[in-house]
Simulated scan of single mutants.
Amino acid sequence: MADSTVLVLVGSLREASVNRQLADLAAETAPAGVTFERFDRLGELPFYNEDIDNESVPEVVAALRDAAARADAALVVTPEYNGSIPGVLKNAIDWLSRPYGNSALKDKPLAVIGAALGQYGGVWAHDETRKSFGIAGPRVVEDLELSLPTQTLDGKHPRESAEVAAKLRDIVGKLVAEIG
């Protein structure tokens, strides 16, 4: 397998979030030759504004788009806030959707996973994130799903669950296999 890079976007800004832990575990379970590049500056992005989306976009926007352009695929790991997508993630989707019809993630495989409170583990946010990214340009791999109710971890790191680690290993392997 050729070397590949996977852009990782985490919808939670909290340093100790279970979703950040899932992102770390996904990177740990990646096949040889696969590099995970987590973009940790979502909280710095200005709200999307077409007036500033020009040849001199803010540096953080250029950095996000450059990271997306370098990537061969993307993994989005997100919680659910009030039944939907966290604002920082939706804002990143808006920035990454441009230029319209030619985004940096255009046609690249993308998977959405995550954890949240509640019995469904964030499934609404994950579905909405898939929908928004699907419109924004990436090729969303619909059957790569993990919506983990955080209470099932019983306060432990996801890597302490053999089932979660195996599921992540499978998702990452299948995502990488989608790289054209």
Rank of each mutant, 00 (worst) to 15 (best):
A2K: 15
A2R: 15
T5M: 12
V6R: 13
V6W: 10
L7H: 08
L9C: 10
V10L: 06
G11E: 03
G11V: 07
G11N: 08
G11S: 07
S12V: 09
R14F: 04
E15P: 01
E15L: 04
S17A: 13
Q21P: 00
Q21A: 15
L22K: 05
L22W: 03
A23V: 01
A23P: 00
D24P: 07
L25F: 07
A26L: 01
A27R: 12
T29D: 01
T29G: 01
A30H: 04
P31E: 14
T35C: 06
R38F: 00
F39D: 09
F39V: 08
R41L: 06
R41T: 01
R41C: 01
G43P: 01
L45P: 05
F47P: 07
N49C: 11
E50D: 15
I52E: 08
I52F: 03
D53K: 13
D53H: 13
V57K: 15
E59L: 11
V60W: 09
A62S: 15
A62M: 10
L64D: 07
R65L: 12
A67F: 02
R70C: 02
A71W: 01
A71I: 02
A73Q: 01
L75Q: 00
V76G: 05
V76Q: 04
V77N: 00
T78R: 11
P79T: 02
E80L: 05
E80Y: 03
Y81H: 14
N82I: 00
I85Y: 00
I85W: 00
V88A: 10
L89P: 09
L89E: 08
K90E: 13
D94N: 11
Y100I: 13
G101Q: 13
G101A: 12
N102S: 14
A104K: 14
A104L: 12
A104C: 11
L105R: 09
L110A: 13
A111E: 09
V112F: 06
G114S: 12
A116E: 07
A116R: 06
A116C: 09
L117T: 15
G121K: 08
V123E: 14
W124V: 11
W124K: 14
A125M: 03
D127Q: 13
D127G: 12
T129V: 04
R130C: 00
K131C: 03
S132N: 10
S132M: 11
S132Q: 10
F133A: 01
F133H: 01
G134W: 01
I135G: 05
G137V: 05
P138H: 04
P138L: 05
R139N: 09
V141M: 07
V141K: 02
V141D: 06
E142C: 02
D143F: 03
E145A: 14
L148Q: 05
T152W: 12
T152H: 09
D154R: 13
G155V: 03
K156P: 03
K156Q: 13
H157G: 05
P158H: 06
P158G: 05
S161W: 06
E163H: 12
A165M: 10
K167A: 14
I171Y: 04
I171P: 04
V176E: 07
V176M: 07
V176G: 07
A177T: 08
I179W: 07
